[in-house]
């Protein structure tokens, strides 16, 4: 009588382990997830503005009312600075990593004097940056510590009406994503 019970238990335990492990592993091994799709369109430490067609073809479930720019940050040569001039429309800067998805995000409301100025750095680089801070000059830039050396910065602006599209695209074209030396 014990035999069937043991085998049933074995089936349930193996099914549970396989199910939970595949769910947990899927974002890390997926070959067509949002991170890799955005990464395929990106360049290292350089902001690329995507056309509406590129967004449509490469980034499923994106709001068609959003214009998108993408940059792959590579921190092995130093921190990366993202600068974005704000406008009337909502704009968001997202930081993504493989497996964990969005690890940080901020909107145009974080701007100082009309500019969102973000430095993304590893924890070691961030220690060096903060060590250089002066007590007399308040820090104006926003700082994001990256849990990885390589990730994606995605900038999304809402195109409220078609007549605003050119202005939104111009805003994104003027957005920078550049490596800095410490």
């Amino acid at each position: 009588m014990i035999g069937p019970f043991i085998y049933t238990l074995l089936v349930l335990v193996v099914a549970g382990i396989i199910h939970l492990s595949t769910v947990l592993v899927m974002p890390w091994v997926a070959t067509r997830d949002g991170f890799l799709r955005a990464s395929a369109l990106a360049r290292d430490n350089s902001m690329i503005v995507l056309s509406a067609t590129e967004v449509r073809n490469a980034l499923p479930y994106t709001d068609p009312a959003q214009a998108v720019a993408v940059c792959r940050f590579v921190l092995d040569r130093g921190p990366v600075r993202v600068r974005l001039a704000t406008a009337d429309w909502p704009t968001t800067i997202l930081f993504l990593r493989k497996g964990a998805g969005i690890f940080h995000s901020l909107t145009e409301k974080a701007a100082t004097q009309g500019v969102v100025d973000v430095v993304i750095a590893t924890s070691e680089q961030m220690d060096k940056i903060t060590a250089l801070d002066s007590d007399d000059d308040p820090v104006q830039e926003l700082r994001v510590t990256a849990p990885v050396d390589i990730g994606i910065v995605l900038v999304r602006s809402l195109v409220r009406t078609d007549s605003e599209r050119e202005g939104v695209m111009k805003q994104l074209r003027n957005t920078s994503c550049e490596a800095e030396t410490l």
Binding site: L24, P27, G34, G101, S105
Partner: peptide
């Protein structure tokens, strides 16, 4: 984890919480 697996399967970058 289920939401993350769903996003990975759909190839989607969702709205960020701040967004």
């Amino acid at each position: 984890p289920y939401s993350k697996a769903l996003l990975a399967a759909r190839g989607e970058v969702p709205l960020a919480t701040a967004e």
